[in-house]
Design a protein around this nucleic acid. Structure first.
Length: 481
DNA sequence: ATGCATGAGGA
DNA sequence: CCTCATGCATT
């Protein structure tokens, strides 16, 4: 289904293929492609390829033909904990596009990463020489499984996971012989250290290693790929590529939004300290006080005055570190909604989605093709991040649960058409998104801090002063609140 | 991933 | 007009 809504587009073609997990290539540290095989315990595998069957029936122009054929790396099943290695090649004008590589790690985790063609071929050429049987493979896999889960448990974004994984690979390569659990911990620390900088660079603080490793690392992901065949994603790869690119370029500047209290916030009151306090209070206010329902559990129960005091000079700079989502087990229950349960599901869902090699966009499209309510990429993104109110989450959850079950079924049956694109009607044109200038934002924020609910007259004059549509200004306040 | 837009439902 | 839930469009 190639698709891409006609008008769409901003998408510059495969502009930046690489990004990927290529790291130190030569010299000191081994490159990813050098250690990947051992990391995964792959010593015997076969490279197969099959022409991509146009699952969607069309897409003649994918003629990346010769090489664009979907390739599969089939891992030797003899190595426990590892199953089929799949490589979905994304069609593109040139064969240099990066490929999404999904690899099961351990028995219940799965990592996805992008590898460019040279890395792929490097990986491919390795099978000829790699023959050393390391009895400790399973051990390695296990270690990585744990680490992977920790990464996932911390709610990191795809980009973060990729970089973290990358560091993980290096860490493992360096400590290649350690397999004891104790050593495992050590590795975790190494990984943490290695990752920290990367993560920080990306703007998020997060405790990567929860040494106490918490009880529930039960990310029960059942494995169903026995022969790595699956596809259907082959045809959708355009979207895949698109998303991949975006993720690659992903800049997480962490601006954060102050919509209502999100599950992430509710379940982690601890992270909401200092600067965050104000926002949190506001969040509680807007969503609970006003809705009269409010329930005991919310940590800050008391309602804050409508006019957020906000002691800071500039509200915008106060909203930072909101997306810190680390592990926690607080089984909070708000409004009869088990946040913990939702959190668990969101985690599982993300893992499943990735293991199926699907992007949020694809899931959204698939959803819209099925019965019942559907949700957009945005919604899915927010759900996975738990950047939504408990109420919304509870509403979306069953939909995703249902879809996930069906997706698994289809996957097992050959994985055909996991996503079906349904031509959306153009609908009426949406107003072009307004982009406020930094200056305007300064003014707006200044006003917002003084008064979150400006009167009609105030809005008008403000709009006037800034030379923006009154409606635009009004909406800005609504969204800001 | 997230900023702004839209529309429903409620005062 | 507001709040909320969502989505489109853009970063």
């Amino acid at each position: 289904m190639d698709t891409r809504p006609s008008g769409s587009t901003n998408k510059q073609d495969s502009g930046s293929p690489s990004q990927v997990s290529s790291t130190s290539t030569d010299g000191k540290l081994p490159s990813v492609q050098q250690i990947l095989p051992s990391l995964l315990g792959i010593h015997n595998w076969t490279l197969g390829s099959m022409m991509q069957h146009s699952a969607g029936a069309h897409n003649p122009n994918h003629n990346a033909s010769r090489n664009a054929a979907t390739q599969f790396l089939l891992a030797n099943q003899a190595l426990q904990g590892l199953q089929a290695q799949q490589i979905f090649q994304m069609p593109s004008s040139n064969g240099a596009a990066p490929q999404l590589v999904s690899m099961p790690v351990g028995t219940s985790g799965q990592a996805s990463m992008l590898l460019n063609s040279s890395q792929i071929s490097a990986l491919a050429s390795l099978h000829t020489k790699s023959s050393s049987h390391n009895p400790q493979n399973s051990g390695m896999a296990l270690v990585n499984q744990l680490q992977m889960q920790q990464l996932l448990n911390n709610g990191l974004s795809s980009t973060q996971i990729l970089s973290a994984l990358n560091n993980q690979l290096l860490a493992n390569a360096v400590a290649q012989s350690n397999l004891q659990l104790a050593v495992c911990q050590q590795q975790n620390n190494n990984v943490a250290n290695n990752c920290q900088s990367a993560i920080r660079r990306v703007g998020k603080v997060s405790s990567l290693v929860d040494s106490s490793s918490k009880s529930s690392v039960n990310v029960s992901v059942k494995q169903e790929d026995d022969d790595g065949d699956s596809d259907g994603s082959g045809a959708r790869s355009e979207n895949e590529a698109e998303a991949a690119d975006r993720e690659a370029a992903d800049h997480e500047d962490d601006r954060s939004s102050d919509r209502g209290p999100t599950i992430a916030q509710l379940t982690h009151p601890s992270v909401i300290k200092s600067t965050k306090a104000v926002n949190y209070a506001q969040a509680i206010k807007s969503s609970y006080v006003s809705s009269t329902r409010k329930s005991a559990s919310s940590p800050t129960s008391s309602s804050s005055p409508v006019n957020a005091p906000s002691s800071s000079a500039d509200g915008r700079h106060n909203k930072h570190e909101k997306s810190v989502i680390c592990s926690a087990r607080s089984a909070a229950v708000v409004d009869g909604i088990d946040l913990e349960e939702i959190r668990e599901f969101a985690k599982r869902f993300k893992i499943r989605r990735l293991s199926l090699g699907l992007t949020q966009t694809q899931v959204g499209q698939a959803l819209s093709a099925t019965e019942g309510p559907s949700y957009s990429q945005s919604a899915i993104c927010r759900f996975e991040k738990l950047d939504i109110t408990p109420r919304s989450a509870q509403k979306i959850k069953p939909v995703l649960e249902k879809w996930m079950r069906e997706a698994e079924e289809r996957y097992e049956n050959g994985g055909q058409n996991l996503a079906e694109f349904v031509g959306c009607e153009p609908n009426k044109k949406r107003k072009r998104r307004t982009s406020f200038t930094p200056q305007a934002l300064e003014v707006l924020n200044a006003h917002f801090e003084k008064n979150t609910h400006p009167s009609g007259a105030e809005v008008t004059s403000l709009a006037d002063e800034l030379a923006y549509d009154r409606e635009v200004v009004r909406v800005w306040f609504c969204n800001r609140r």
